[in-house]
Structure formats: structure tokens, C-alpha cells
């Protein structure tokens, strides 16, 4: 699944960007330089970015500009960031935060 808007009737053609590889829960995905984690994953059709701490239900991007904190993910095994504000880089390792019930976190 690829959901890029390469050609736009008003904004024009998307100029060539450098492709990078990122890892989400250990699996490699294509992304472009300038992508946020949120846009890169959505372009691949991956909507669920974390599990709710208590219910374990899937959660994803809601506001996309840093206000709602719904898209929190873990980067490089330590830092929790908002996926919608964080720019990707080649080799970036991103992991979902899981529900407490599973005893993972």
C-alpha cells in the first residue's frame, strides 16, 4: 500500500526526495527525508501506532500537529516522542508503547 500524493493539480509534482528506511516494531518500511514518523507510517497504511496503557486498545494519529499526544511512540529504545512532530532518519528504530496489562512496560 502506497498513499503518496506525487501529483497534485494545484500544488504540482512532488520533487524528488531521498528515500530512507525506518524500522517500526522491528519491521523495515520505506520513508522519505522530511517525513514525520506519522506521515511515513500512514503512507504505508499503518494506522495503529500504540496501545492504550489500560485498555490495550489500538491508538493512532489524531491531531497531527502535536496537541493531542495520541501518537506517542518510543524511538531508539528510550525516548518517547510524538510521531507527528518527529522527523525520520535512515535506520531510525521506532517501537509501539504497549498496554500495561501485558506487563511489557
Amino acid at each position: 500500500m502506497r498513499m503518496r500524493v506525487d501529483h497534485h493539480p494545484v500544488l504540482g509534482k512532488q520533487t524528488d526526495r531521498k528515500q530512507v528506511t525506518i524500522f517500526f516494531n522491528g519491521k523495515p518500511y520505506d520513508a522519505y527525508e522530511g517525513d514525520t514518523i506519522a506521515s511515513a507510517m500512514m503512507a504505508q497504511g499503518v494506522y495503529a501506532l500504540r496501545q492504550h496503557e489500560v485498555s490495550g486498545n489500538a491508538r493512532g494519529v489524531y491531531c497531527n500537529i502535536g496537541h493531542c499526544y495520541e501518537c506517542r511512540v518510543k524511538v531508539e529504545d528510550r525516548k518517547v516522542v510524538r510521531a507527528c512532530l518527529t522527523t525520520v532518519y535512515h535506520g531510525m528504530e521506532i517501537d509501539s508503547l504497549s498496554g500495561f496489562s501485558e506487563g511489557n512496560e
Binding site: 498513499m3 503518496r4 500524493v5 506525487d6 497534485h8 500544488l11 512532488q14 517525513d35 514525520t36 506519522a38 506521515s39 500512514m42 503512507a43 494506522y47 495503529a48 501506532l49 492504550h52 486498545n57 489500538a58 491508538r59 493512532g60 494519529v61 489524531y62 491531531c63 497531527n64 500537529i65 493531542c68 495520541e70 507527528c84
Partner: peptide, 22 residues
């Protein structure tokens, strides 16, 4: 809160800024 539900502005930024269709 189901993934794939977003604010209208989120979809706008995804499409026009990141050039990704949700």
C-alpha cells in the same frame, strides 16, 4: 479513538503538507 479517525486539520496537513493520503 480508533486508528484512522482524525481531526479534519490532521487530514489537511497529511495531504497538503506531507503529501500523504490518509
Amino acid at each position: 479513538t480508533i486508528p484512522g479517525v482524525m481531526s479534519i486539520g490532521a487530514a489537511q496537513v497529511m495531504g497538503n503538507v506531507h503529501r500523504v493520503k490518509p
